[in-house]
């Protein structure tokens, strides 16, 4: 048997090896690309793990122990904190209020945000200045803006009541001292803060709708509402959903407006979950109960996120 290879055989062998080499090279490249991809993703994964996952797991741990601010390493009590808070009247009121506060605020923001967005679509002098000014409520620190609302609702010096009184309006509630007006008051402050954000999201979507589609629809006899319902909303739905999701999370977790305006009063009627969790967990020192209260928000977020993202995905497909 000859040990030497003929040129033809060598060529044939080379031709046979080439695809294998190419495949290997491709595999290495793919592996390299994947590794590079993971490398690029690493900061986000580390960020999420450190700033979201770790606190979340810590909250879960706290809620299953009797941890307090003085003894953060509590001992295991199982689901007792959850059953305890569920049996508490104040907690159930706060849970109900959280939904009222969130959905009430969202409706207000959606209406005002839509109106504002359409107004900002029009051409007029000083539009840019006005647009900048309208974003102020959302950008100014919440403590500052809420103090303004506190003055408006002040039981002794309420500017709101003085104004309505001057124009002959007969109803002058103790805004922050009666349950229903207090709830309306905190929603008003939250809507005022948040509707510019809704307007900007909507405006971004509206500007992406080709004007010729709207013009042809108008020529075909579509009125404003039909154009909005059948053309604009479906076209900007992804942006709307993402905006709505953000806004829901902001409202459901916003403790500052309630804390600064009512601290959950009068008689616990304006407590919402994040604010109650702060009061009991941090001010009261009962970390375990505070964690249990705040974790009641988690299923709500998960369900809302899953529903919205699924709808979005279906639309994209």
């Amino acid at each position: 048997m000859s040990l030497t290879r003929t040129p033809a055989a060598a060529e044939a062998a080379a031709v046979a090896v080439a695809p294998q080499r190419e495949a290997g090279r491709m595999r290495r490249m793919v592996r390299g690309e994947a590794a590079f991809g993971y490398l690029l993703m690493a900061p986000v994964i580390i960020y999420l793990a450190l700033l979201l996952l770790y606190p979340l797991l810590l909250s879960v741990w706290f809620s299953l122990t009797d941890a307090s601010t003085g003894q953060p390493f509590g001992s295991w009590v199982g689901l007792k904190n959850f059953t305890d808070v569920w049996s508490n009247e104040t907690f159930r009121l706060a849970l109900r209020n959280s939904f009222i506060f969130t959905f009430g605020s969202e409706i207000g923001k959606a209406i005002l945000g839509t109106v504002l967005a359409f107004l900002l679509l029009r051409r007029f002098r000083g539009k840019k200045v006005l647009r900048a000014l309208l974003v102020l409520p959302w950008t100014v620190p919440v403590a500052l803006t809420t103090l303004g609302w506190l003055l408006l609702f002040d039981p002794t010096f309420s500017m709101l009541n003085r104004t309505t009184s001057a124009i002959g309006f007969p109803y002058h509630p103790n805004w922050l001292g009666e349950p229903v007006p207090a709830m309306i008051a905190i929603m008003m402050a939250n809507i005022w803060r948040g509707f510019p954000f809704s307007a900007i999201i909507l405006l971004a979507g509206l500007t992406s709708v080709p004007p010729e589609i709207l013009e042809s629809a108008a020529l075909d006899g579509c009125g404003f509402l039909r154009r909005f319902h059948y053309i604009i909303v479906p076209m900007i739905a992804p942006i709307l959903f993402i905006g709505l999701l953000f806004d829901l999370v902001f409202s459901f977790t916003d403790l500052s407006v309630v804390y600064l305006l009512t601290r959950g009063g009068p008689e616990n009627t304006t407590h919402i979950l994040p604010e109650l969790a702060y009061q009991n967990g941090i001010q009261g020192g009962d970390l375990a109960q505070g964690a249990a209260i705040s974790l009641f928000m988690l299923p709500v977020f998960v369900v809302a996120c899953v529903i919205m993202l699924r709808i979005l995905r279906r639309r994209e497909i």
């Binding site: 506190l150 002040d154 039981p155 002794t156 103790n174 922050l176 001292g177 009068p266």
Partner: peptide, 10 residues
């Protein structure tokens, strides 16, 4: 009757 809405400076 205002006292239900009072803060520390009210």
């Amino acid at each position: 009757d205002e006292v239900y809405a009072w803060g520390d400076v009210s």
